[in-house]
Amino acid sequence: MSDEVDVPESHPRYHSLLTRHRIEAGVETGITSQQGLIAQGRGEAFDYLLGEETIPSADRAARTAAAALLRADKPVLSVNGNVAALVPEETVALANAVDADIEVNLFNRTEKRIERIADHLGAHGAEEVKGLTADARIPGIDHERAKVDSDGIYSADVVVVPLEDGDRAEALGEMDKTEIVIDLNPLSRSPQVASIPIIDNVVRAIPNITEHAHDLKSRSEPGLHSIIEEFDADTALREAERTIRESDN
């Protein structure tokens, strides 16, 4: 990955600069919207306050997410432009680890952009990507993110929604779905309404969930259920907020 941007890996901001480059490249290729650049900058500020590392509460949340995905009857990973630009291969690896579908869902939706993202994910190993059919709607949403596949997000019982819009996060919760939200801001509406909020950078969180999924694959159904039951979303959010408020960065 070091050839993606002309910055040496020894540079203290190497990973941050590489992430920015991926988003910029996503905009150039039509995968990521220009608003995605703003979202990336906002998230980067929170990541800096978190020490640019996975804090213990986020790791526990990732482990709980893995347990929920392994127990799910129909898990789906929702992908937007930033996710496709930042973690395409990692998203495919997670889908394979937990036998989940991948579905593209966009606020700034065009058929061409959906196709480009699907092709991009395919180039990184995805055998099938949902999102083009859009034959169902999430109730209570008036914008383009309401459009989903009936055999994808609409019928899913567990949905991973990284870098999510708060209103869709609330709407999916109203549909009694288990929502796994990845967000760097613990005060954002999306993690506040999530079943399992992971306050972490998506570039760390997705592979971390995958690693936990591999570790938990042999765990019994009651064992997975116990992990999920022991997790407290409010505690995870409070611990993340405390880490940010007490940051020396």
Rank of each mutant, 00 (worst) to 15 (best):
A25V: 10
G36C: 09
A72T: 06
H120T: 00
D149K: 06
E127P: 02
D59H: 00
E52T: 11
E111Y: 09
E127W: 10
I38N: 13
I55M: 01
S78L: 10
A45G: 15
P56L: 07
D101N: 12
S57R: 00
I38P: 05
D73F: 11
G43W: 14
N80V: 06
P75M: 10
D135I: 10
A58M: 03
A146L: 08
R71Q: 05
T29E: 07
Q40K: 15
A62E: 14
V148H: 06
L37Y: 04
T64I: 04
L70T: 03
V98E: 04
L86W: 03
A123C: 09
R42P: 03
E90K: 02
D135E: 06
T91V: 11
E89P: 00
T32R: 08
P139M: 04
R109N: 07
V79C: 05
A95G: 01
H120F: 15
A118V: 05
G36Y: 11
I38F: 07
R71G: 00
Q34T: 15
K74I: 14
R137V: 07
V129N: 01
R116Y: 13
A134W: 00
Q34H: 15
N82D: 01
V83G: 05
A45I: 12
E127F: 10
I138D: 15
G81A: 14
H120C: 01
T133Q: 11
H124T: 08
V98C: 10
G43D: 09
R71D: 00
Y48S: 09
H143N: 15
T29P: 00
K74Y: 09
E127N: 12
A95H: 01
E103P: 13
V79D: 00
G122M: 08
D73E: 14
A65C: 13
A84E: 12
A84C: 11
N80D: 08
Y48I: 07
L37N: 02
L106M: 05
E89K: 02
A61F: 09
T64P: 11
A45N: 14
A65Y: 05
F107H: 13
A25G: 09
A39W: 02
D119I: 03
L121S: 11
H143G: 07
A100L: 09
Y48F: 15
R63A: 01
E53Q: 08
Q40M: 14
T133R: 13
A93N: 14
S78N: 10
E103G: 11
I138F: 12
T91F: 10
E115G: 09
G140M: 07
